[in-house]
Design a protein around this nucleic acid. Sequence first.
DNA 1: GACATATAGTTAGTTATGCAACTAATATAA
DNA 2: TTATATTAGTTGCATAACTAACTATATGTC
Lengths: 151, 151
Amino acid sequence: MSNNQFKRGELYSVINGMATTAVARRLQKNFRNAGLEITIEQWSVLYHLWKEDGLSQLELGNRTFRDKASTTRLIDNLEKQELVTRIASKDDRRINLVYLTDTAKPLQQITYELANKTMNEALQNISKEEIEVVKNVLQRVYDNLTSKDLI
Amino acid sequence: MSNNQFKRGELYSVINGMATTAVARRLQKNFRNAGLEITIEQWSVLYHLWKEDGLSQLELGNRTFRDKASTTRLIDNLEKQELVTRIASKDDRRINLVYLTDTAKPLQQITYELANKTMNEALQNISKEEIEVVKNVLQRVYDNLTSKDLI
DNA sequence: GACATATAGTTAGTTATGCAACTAATATAA
DNA sequence: TTATATTAGTTGCATAACTAACTATATGTC
């Protein structure tokens, strides 16, 4: 059917995502060592709000590749830590717009530096060209698996 | 320090692992559609036992990149479903050797086919050379982040 | 305007993850 | 041989994931 037949031993490492997991763990560790209490999942939400504040929960879910139930709970926890607040949209009261608090704002710079540091640790001795290939391939993998759902 | 400085917008997609997540979701969906009740995490353990039965929990944790607590619970659930059994090692009674049951054995062929199908879906129009680059880079990322822990 | 449908978000239930503290068994050192 | 340290596994606690069922608001059609 396709020419991508895998030898048994190759399958697992591709699916497993061990590199992604290792990056996530290292970033979490770097956060912890810097005294930051947030999880990388929480950070992924803040990351998008720093780029554009006041997104709806659904839009945040889309941008962070989460379903709405997961997004709800993540924002519950962020709200508990007083990093974001939910404000119902005036136009459509079904919609919660999520806004950063003043507590969250100073975290932007330091978490960005720690993320950058983490990526430098992860990508030692890997060339820009290789990184480009990886990013390109992973994007196409994602597209292969999500565009079909629309048919 | 390093030459791998990322533009802000590039950071997230690399760390996020959206492609890995998409592959995992698709594989889970393909399992479900085939009437299989197992999670991909459970499958990842079975996968290694099919290659070599009777591994210790610690060894299974190493091969599936999990800590021992996660491994314990995963095997709890596999045991509940009667897919594996724990047998204490005669040489060292601290060690649990994990063995496949007769219930688990017929799953090997079908899950392998479903995993293969999933990879074919994921890797449409991606060349063998590109896949090689990705595998190689992800392995080096993993090594970059784990070898340091040994110092 | 009333009824059916769609949308945004929440909740319940199950599985999985990581860390830290713990138990039991084994190995090492005095 | 007794005390100490190490190792394999378990348990408690917190966060997070997905599915499915639910509530509340909005939209569309007759």
